[in-house]
Nucleic acid binder design. Structure first.
Lengths: 122, 122
DNA sequence: AGTAATAGTAACATGCAGGTAACTACTAAA
DNA sequence: TTTAGTAGTTACCTGCATGTTACTATTACT
């Protein structure tokens, strides 16, 4: 038996682990360097491969197609191939993908505030 | 000049990049495999090193001290050394660290729903 | 004196996330 | 027929983010 200084109800510890697990689950799907940025980008509407490539600065073609494919498997994104001309593939969020929106906007909001804090103290 | 199928106002593209930048800023501070879990854990109150080690399952001692140190530098976490007995160091979120709470809970919430979706379809 | 617990640090090892560059396949325009 | 623009894929390579293990220092208990 362990005794900690601050006994802490087993209840709160369970709650804590539960919450950590949920966060972990989310990060399992949304993790990686680019997925969240891609979703953020697609929240502004359906985009083509090259559009995303241009808007998500720094991402390489390989990573973009890789992440998109993963997100398609997870039903976050839908891929549509337009009837040729010069091919045209467009990507859009599924309804499920849209459900990530609150996560993104909370995160973006915090990031925004954080940037202000940092630049203020420099 | 590029012509895209869906012309998309430059306005929305700017907005999009702006939002991506904010998300990126946030992930710069909260990124890494463990920080979000640690914060989630500390949202339930101040904890000692070994408590966190136990509650954030899978984390190694090295990573824990490393991530905690980084978060201290970023003013997300406060470290307090108790006057000995067997030493006792406790960590708690700063007010600034608490401001991440909405992010965590939105994420946890989504993770929770996601888990339900996955287990349902299996 | 020896053991255990706390909170770490240091040295070493490694896998995989991610980058780069070259290549394909299709179409259209010059 | 050569160039350019789409949307990728493939092979190769590298570094860093982590993991593992062993070690320290302090105090308390037996």
């Amino acid at each position: 038996m362990q005794v900690t200084t601050k006994p802490e109800t087993p209840h709160s510890s369970e709650e804590c682990k539960h919450s950590i697990r949920a966060v972990h689950d989310a990060m399992y799907v949304l993790g990686g360097k680019w997925k969240i940025s891609i979703i953020a980008c697609l929240l502004f509407g359906a985009k083509r491969y090259s559009d995303i490539l241009r808007e998500v600065e720094g991402i390489s073609g390989k990573m973009l197609s890789r992440e998109l494919k993963e997100m398609e498997v997870n039903f976050l994104v839908k891929r549509t191939v337009g009837k040729s001309q010069p091919v045209m593939v467009s990507y859009e969020l599924t309804e499920y993908g849209e459900s990530v929106k609150p996560v993104i906007s909370t995160l973006a909001n915090w990031g925004h505030i954080h940037r202000k804090c940092v630049t203020k103290n420099s």
